[in-house]
Amino acid sequence: MEPRISMLTLGVTDLEASTRFYRDGLGLPEYESEGDVTFFETAGAWLALYPRTALAEDATVCADGDGFRGMSIAHNVESKRDVDTVLEEASGAGATIRKPARDTDWGGYSGYFADLDGFLWEVAWNPDMDLTG
Results as ranks from 00 to 15, higher is better:
L47I: 05
E78P: 08
D115K: 03
A90H: 09
G133Y: 10
C62D: 15
A90R: 06
T13E: 14
E41C: 13
D58P: 00
A114K: 08
E30V: 12
A101M: 01
A93N: 03
M7N: 15
G25S: 04
F21V: 00
L28H: 10
R23G: 04
L26G: 05
G107L: 03
A95D: 09
G107V: 00
A45V: 15
D105V: 01
F68H: 10
T19H: 02
E16H: 00
T38N: 06
V12M: 02
A63P: 13
C62Y: 13
S18I: 08
D103A: 11
Y22H: 06
T96E: 10
N126Y: 01
S33T: 14
V61A: 09
R23F: 09
D36V: 12
P127K: 08
T60Y: 07
T60N: 15
G35Y: 14
T19V: 02
E32Q: 15
R98P: 01
T19F: 10
P127V: 00
P29C: 13
P127T: 08
M71A: 14
D103F: 00
L131P: 11
D128A: 12
G118Q: 07
R102C: 15
G108A: 02
R69Y: 10
S79L: 02
L10A: 05
A95M: 09
V86W: 11
R98M: 15
N76E: 03
R20W: 04
G65E: 06
G108I: 05
E88W: 05
L28S: 06
F39M: 13
L87P: 05
L49T: 09
L15M: 01
E122T: 04
H75E: 07
E34W: 14
G35N: 14
F119V: 04
Y31V: 14
G92D: 04
G44S: 15
E32F: 14
A95H: 07
C62K: 15
V86A: 09
L87N: 03
W46N: 13
D64W: 05
G108T: 08
G133Q: 13
D130I: 08
G118R: 04
Y109P: 00
L49Q: 03
S18H: 03
M129L: 15
A17H: 06
A54R: 13
T60V: 13
G133V: 11
A48Y: 05
A45K: 11
P51K: 07
F39N: 01
A56N: 05
A17L: 09
F68K: 04
G108S: 08
L28I: 02
D82T: 09
Y50N: 09
Y22S: 02
T38G: 06
P29R: 14
